[in-house]
Amino acid sequence: MGEENKKLKIIRKKLKVLLVDHLSLEDIKPEDIKDDEILFGEGLGLDSLDAVEIVVLLQRNFGLEVKDLNKGREIFYSIDTLAKYVAENMDEKAE
């Protein structure tokens, strides 16, 4: 359990750095983004075009393809949900 939390923490941190680095998030530092903050619409204010960037970031940095389009909104809800998706699917790839 501790190992899993540690892994999630590392992924969350990496995701925040990637979002700040690649999206047009003005005057926002990675540490300003809360783990449970809503990413799209209200909250961080990302839009559908930022989703394009996130899909590519997931592919380039974690080797993940977002194929289940019905789960898109669920996966991209917050840093927490995104990190869980990365952790679970990276595990599946490793198996």
């Binding site: 799209f40 559908s48 075009l49 989703a51 394009v52 899909v55 590519v56 393809e65 977002v66 194929k67 389009l69 898109g72 909104r73 991209f76």
Partner: peptide, 12 residues
């Protein structure tokens, strides 16, 4: 009219 204006599907 789907999530993210269909952009994820377009990309795929």
């Amino acid at each position: 009219e789907q999530d993210f204006g269909g952009t994820i599907e377009v990309m795929e």
